[in-house]
């Protein structure tokens, strides 16, 4: 399972990087989204993959990592997902406004670059 997940993360990073380096804002947004998926999976995997183990301690069970999944990476992933979701929404809004104002969806596009 580790191997499959590692390959999936690697593919997501590769695809995300390729898309993020393209010159259109829509590709850029998609690329950054894929990158954030890959990062979220990586954080989740860092808590070690363990099927069938709950992250919550119930009454009557010993709270040890042998019987339970590490809850902290799951909390971290939740924070990271919320933040990257908000950031993607913001970037989309800016990209749409920029396309309207600069008459182009090229990341450097529309008009001169005069400071």
């Amino acid at each position: 399972m580790e191997l499959a997940l590692s390959i999936a993360i690697g593919l997501l990073i590769a695809a995300g990087t390729w898309l993020a380096l393209r010159a259109r804002t829509f590709d850029l947004v998609l690329g950054l989204t894929l990158l954030s998926y890959a990062v979220n999976l990586a954080i989740f995997a860092m808590g070690r993959l363990a099927p069938g183990k709950p992250p919550l301690v119930r009454e009557g069970t010993a709270g040890a990592l042998a019987t339970h999944a590490d809850p902290l990476p799951q909390a971290l992933v939740l924070t990271a997902i919320v933040i990257s979701f908000a950031m993607t929404a913001l970037l989309l809004a800016i990209a749409v406004r920029s396309r309207a104002a600069n008459r182009s969806d090229h990341v450097d596009g529309g008009g001169g670059d005069g400071a």
Binding site: L35, A38, V107
Partner: peptide, 25 residues
């Protein structure tokens, strides 16, 4: 101009944030 520069700034910082999370992980 500010919108165009903001696209650069936001995208660049989003990639940096992704690297930060990878390092933390």
């Amino acid at each position: 101009l500010r919108l165009k520069r903001s696209v650069h700034y936001v995208a660049f910082n989003l990639v940096a944030s992704a690297l930060f999370l990878l390092a933390v992980a």
